[in-house]
C-alpha cells in the first residue's frame, strides 16, 4: 500500500435547511483502502458519498482528492477518471444490450462520433468481453439488460467500472436490493476487483456483517458526526450496539 493520501476530508459540514447532515467531519483515506461507511439511517452516509461524488457541495470545510480541491474536478470527463460510482441496481439503461452498458464506462474517453458509431457496431469488444468474463457473465454480451436478475445487473455495473478504471469507487448501498447470497457475491467481487486494480473503495452499507467481512476499515457515522474510525478487526460488538442504539427517552 502506498503512503499517498488519496482523499483528505477536513472539518467538513453540510446542512439541509435547518437539519444538520454532517458536522465538522475529518478523516484521511489512503490509496488502496477498502472503507465501509456504517451507521443508522439518516446518519449522513449518503450525504458524505454525494459530497465525494461532487453531486453536493459542502457548506464549509475542505475536501481534497489527490491533494487537489474538488473544484478542480468540475469537468465530468476528468472526474470520471478519478471517481466511479455504483449504486443500487437501477443505474443501468435497461433497454440497451449488456455490452453497451459495459462500454458506457468508456464514454469519458470517446468523442461524439465514436460513441454514435459504437451503438451500431460495438467498439473495443475485446475489452468489454474481458471485463464481463472477470465478473462472471461471459455469455450475456448481447442480452437485453433489463432481462438480467438484480445480482447480474450489479455485476454488469462492476464490469462498467472495470472499463471506466477510476481510482476511487464510491458505492452507495450497492447490495441493498439483493438477497444475502447475491449480496455476498457482489461485495466479494467488488473488493476483489478493487484490490486487483489497486483502487480505493468507499461503500455505505446497512449490514455490519458485510462491512466486517469484506472491508479493511470501518467508519461509523451517527447524527452527522464521526462515531468511530477503526480497522475492521478492532471493532467491538459493544461499539456497534451503541452505534445503532435508538436515542434513550429522557
Amino acid at each position: 500500500m502506498s503512503e499517498k493520501n488519496i482523499i483528505e476530508i477536513n472539518q467538513i459540514s453540510k446542512n439541509y435547511e435547518r437539519k444538520i447532515a454532517l458536522s465538522s467531519l475529518s478523516f484521511v483515506v489512503e490509496k488502496g483502502e477498502l472503507i465501509a461507511l456504517i451507521g443508522p439511517s439518516g446518519a449522513g452516509k449518503t450525504t458524505l458519498l454525494n459530497l465525494l461524488a461532487s453531486i453536493l457541495e459542502a457548506d464549509s470545510g475542505e475536501l481534497l482528492v489527490d491533494g487537489k480541491p474538488m473544484s478542480q474536478f468540475s469537468d465530468q470527463k476528468k472526474r470520471a477518471k478519478k471517481i466511479g460510482i455504483i449504486r443500487q441496481q437501477f443505474d443501468l439503461v435497461g433497454q440497451l444490450p449488456v455490452i453497451h452498458n459495459v462500454l458506457a464506462g468508456r464514454l469519458a474517453d470517446w468523442g461524439f462520433f465514436k460513441s454514435l458509431f459504437n451503438l451500431f457496431i460495438p467498439q473495443e469488444r475485446q475489452e468489454a468481453t474481458t471485463a464481463l468474463k472477470r465478473v462472471g457473465l461471459p455469455d450475456k454480451l448481447y442480452e437485453r439488460t433489463s432481462n438480467l436478475s438484480g445480482g447480474e445487473q450489479q455485476r454488469v455495473a462492476l464490469a462498467r467500472l472495470l472499463m471506466q478504471k477510476p481510482e476511487i469507487i464510491l458505492a452507495d448501498e450497492p447490495v441493498a436490493s439483493l438477497d444475502p447470497a447475491r449480496a455476498d457475491d457482489v461485495l466479494d467481487m467488488l473488493t476483489k476487483l478493487a484490490k486487483e486494480e489497486h483502487q480505493t473503495v468507499i461503500a455505505s452499507l446497512h449490514s455490519v456483517d458485510y462491512a466486517r467481512k469484506y472491508f479493511t476499515r470501518l467508519i461509523a457515522l451517527k447524527n452527522g458526526k464521526l462515531f468511530f474510525d477503526l480497522p475492521a478487526d478492532q471493532v467491538t460488538d459493544k461499539q456497534l450496539e451503541e452505534l445503532y442504539q435508538l436515542k434513550e427517552l429522557s
Partner: peptide, 26 residues
C-alpha cells in the same frame, strides 16, 4: 427514469452521449 442517466453522467458522458445512451434507447 433519471437514475441511469445520472449514472451515465458520473461515468463521464457529456450531453450528447447521455442522449444517445440514456434517453433515446428508453
Amino acid at each position: 427514469d433519471s437514475r441511469p442517466i445520472r449514472n451515465l453522467a458520473s461515468a463521464g458522458a457529456n450531453r450528447a452521449q447521455i442522449l444517445m445512451y440514456g434517453v433515446f434507447p428508453t
